[in-house]
Design a protein around this nucleic acid. Structure first.
Lengths: 206, 206
DNA sequence: TGCATTCGTGCACGGCGTGCATCGAGTCCG
DNA sequence: CGGACTCGATGCACGCCGTGCACGAATGCA
């Protein structure tokens, strides 16, 4: 039983492909028919996979849909780890977030599409929050290993507050959507910068 | 169709009683048999109410269980509104939280019991986060009406960060549970104070 | 007292999530 | 190469979930 990340077998490749197929099928159906009309059965059919097998990969349609968003949150943590250690915590966090946002690739567009679906579909909110909560632990660990002296309380507070701020900023950005596409990325970048600046300067006000 | 909060009729009293009976039955069963062994049917039977009627009051067992916790979050918002306007935002928030915690009544003990259940039962996490997210709007509105000049971005950021901090602090407090009961309240009060102090002083670190 | 609401309830139905047994492709080893 | 082993994919069955619908009873009102 190896825990290596790079499992080089045909089996592992097929598993990855199956998971991706299900994830994309879920997103396609949600965009085409609306979130409320998506069932596990339909997703499985769309990907030409048995219903039972779908549940081997995801606990439900919500998890399949938000798996796309989870990749984005993981990416933020990964980028944060890669930031130079001399940067302050909030500075590194902000840059990590901006780096992920600047990736204007297919995964990014899918991520935005999922977030827009989640905004309109209340049934996705619990799962969306759970995804962030799960990544909080990873981010807290990453922050902790950056500190000169360990401070679990501070690391976890930072992680929690950072993701909460990110979620709020994205929500406010999507809220401004005119018609059927989101505002320009520059607006989002500016909002992220000001939010993190507020946190760094001290949140209190008279 | 009156929207008054105090509906003084026999009907309203019975509805409140039914809701409370279901809520308490859910908590009783979860504590006795474990969260995973609680079903809507059992809750309804325990309260001597039809299964169908249960779903007229709650969307599922998770909501019935977390309803107890939701009351606590609402109380924080209510106390915050009652704080004198000359206090700074974070100061008023901290005092509001401490006021609610100091209420050593039955509702408080039930609230703690539910939080301890939620910590051990992953299936309750999504709903727990949703409860807080729902109260964020109310808290943001309360903060907004306190500010000299309106600042929606700041108000919502404060509300989100405050509840996120509260959730984290409670989690860390329950984490320290020795055996079958939580650490003393004084520890919790101190943790809340330091967390809010950190936010007020600025979250960033080298 | 009679009428209008509204609540509680039973019924039915489609969807959900999982344990279990089976089959077959992929992997390993001699 | 070939046999044995591993593990994912699948079908089946079952209990639970959440809701639309219809109906009767309790409540509120004039």
């Amino acid at each position: 039983m190896m825990m290596s990340v790079v499992e080089t077998g045909r089996r592992e490749r097929k598993k990855l492909a199956t998971r991706a197929a299900l994830r994309q099928a879920a997103l396609r159906l949600a965009l085409r028919d609306g979130v409320e009309n998506v069932t596990a059965e339909r997703i499985a059919d769309e990907a030409d996979i048995a219903r039972r097998t779908f549940f081997n990969y995801f606990s439900g349609k919500e998890e399949a849909l938000l798996a796309t968003a989870a990749v984005g949150a993981e990416a933020v943590v990964a980028r944060f780890r890669a930031r130079p250690p001399e940067e302050s915590v909030l500075h590194a966090l902000r840059e990590a977030v901006l780096e992920v946002m600047d990736r204007d690739d297919v995964a990014g567009h899918e991520h935005v599409a999922v977030l827009r679906l989640a905004r309109a579909a209340p049934s996705l909110l619990p799962q969306q929050l759970s995804v962030l909560a799960a990544q909080e632990k990873a981010l807290a660990a990453a922050i902790g290993s950056r500190l000169a002296e360990p401070d679990d309380a501070y690391a976890r507070l930072c992680a929690t507050v950072a993701f909460a701020t990110l979620r709020l900023t994205l929500d406010r950005w999507l809220e401004r959507s005119t018609g059927d596409d989101p505002p320009p990325l520059e607006v989002l970048r500016a909002e992220v910068a000001t939010a993190f600046a507020t946190l760094a300067a001290g949140l209190d006000r008279p």
